[in-house]
Structures are given as C-alpha cells and as structure tokens.
Design a protein around this nucleic acid. Structure first.
Lengths: 122, 122
DNA sequence: TTCTAATATTAGATGCTACTAATATAATAG
DNA sequence: CTATTATATTAGTAGCATCTAATATTAGAA
C-alpha cells in the first residue's frame, strides 16, 4: 500500500505530501454527516416503505394508515417516522389526535432520482 | 390502533378491505429492495466519503489513493468499494496491478440532488 | 371526571454492520 | 523461479440499529 501509479519517484516520501497528488473533496464535515444521516434514514425497509407510501399518497397520511401497510408494531412505525422527520424527509402536522405526514421536496427529489435511474445505468 | 379518520363507519370490518381507504404504492418488491440497498450503501461515512472522492476526482481513482484519505484499513477500503460496486454506484476497471474506480451516472445524480437540496428545504 | 383512541417513549433482546488483522490472490519486476 | 506490490477475501469482534412489548402521553368523547 504505497506507490500511487502516476505519482513521484516513490522515494524519499517521508513528509505527508503537502496536498499534491491526492484526492479530495470540498464538502464540509457537517454537510457530509447530514447527508449520511439522510441516506441511512432511507436505507431501511420500514422507513423506505413508509416514505414511499407518504410520497405516493394523494393527501397527508396519518400513522394509523401506515401501521397495517408496514407490518411492524405501532412503536416501530412511530420510531420510523421520527427518524424520517429528523432527517428532513417528512413534515408533520398535528390535527386532533392524529399526526399527518407529508414528504419534503428533498425526499421527493431523491425518490424521483431513484426512479429515473433504476434501469439502464452504466 | 384503528379508526382511519376519514374512513367508513368503523363497524363490521371483518374482511380486509378490498383496497379502498388504504395507502399503497406501485413499486415492485425487488426495486424497493434494490433502492434500500443502494441507499444503505451510501448511508455510511466511509462509503459516502469514498464515493465523494471518486466522483469529485478529475480522473479515475485507484484504491491506493483512497486508503490514506479515508483513514481506515486497506481491507475496509476494499470492502467499501465492493459494496459501492454491488450497489451500482461505481464502475471499476482493472489496469495492471491497479483497480480504477469511477462514479456511475446514478451515483452522480444522487450526489447532485443531495447538494441541490441541502439547504432551504421545507 | 373517566374512558378510549392515537401516538410517543423507553427498555431490552437480537441481529446486523463495519471495522481490524491476517491471509489469499493477482500482477509485475528481477 | 522469487520477491514485491496492489487489491480481495475471510474470521472474528465490538458496537450499533431495529424490532417487540410495555408504558406514558395527549386529545377528544361521554
């Protein structure tokens, strides 16, 4: 593990190479952590299904409608929705005893890209 | 856990409701599972960072360049790349002793959406 | 108030994930 | 051939994630 194909002569490389010849990106640590959190939130069957159901519904969806469709306990559904909310993928509105959920624009765009790129990718 | 706010009279509901009054989406089980796998692949610091580095690089990137940038063992980098490959997020090309990785269009589009929707979302 | 329904929270178990370390494979150089 | 380099694979493990079950909260109805 050393050699970097197109790099310098592979000799006298004690200093950590001031920045040359190495990959890097310009995203802030916080932004990256937030993205990872968002993606991990969606990378779970229960939460992904919940978000699809919410995004595909004609109107806002309450927890009681999701529970039978998801096939896990009520507590698990509530936890899943909380996680989606923390990740900025759903909005929620309280109305009487019910909580209504809708998908955020960010969530919709992510789902759209997944749909658009599902097949015929390189 | 029953009641469905806008539903029917909440009586005589023994049959499983032929489809009415419940949420649903039209994605195949396989497609959903593949999406979840893709998202879970990206929902990890090491793999997300690796993909960012690959996508932001001017040319294809070899494993030896990623290892120092990611700060985990060589085996862990290899595992991360394998997972990204299985998820369809990177392509790889063998050249001599090196393996060069590039991001797939799907990966680029997902990263773009994350960038575009990072702030000012509802 | 009490009762019931809808949702949230907590505790605990179980399973999965992602790492390190060691080893294996593949390719080139000598 | 042997030695070295680049990457992959495997085994084992520590920690994390997700579920269920039970309990708590909140809101409306009676």
């Amino acid at each position: 593990m050393a050699g970097e194909p197109t790099s310098a002569s592979a000799d006298e490389l004690d200093r950590p190479e001031p920045g040359c010849c190495s990959v890097g990106h310009d995203l802030s640590v916080d932004a990256a952590a937030a993205d990872v959190d968002t993606l991990a939130a969606l990378g779970n069957d229960t939460r992904y299904e919940a978000l699809r159901l919410i995004a595909d519904a004609d109107s806002a969806v309450c927890v009681c409608e999701l529970e039978p469709a998801l096939g896990v306990s009520q507590g698990a559904v509530s936890q899943a929705l909380s996680r989606l909310f923390s990740a900025g993928l759903v909005n929620r509105r309280k109305d009487g005893r019910w909580r209504y959920y809708t998908a955020t624009p960010r969530a919709r765009r992510l789902l759209d890209v997944l749909d658009e790129t599902r097949n015929a990718d390189a």
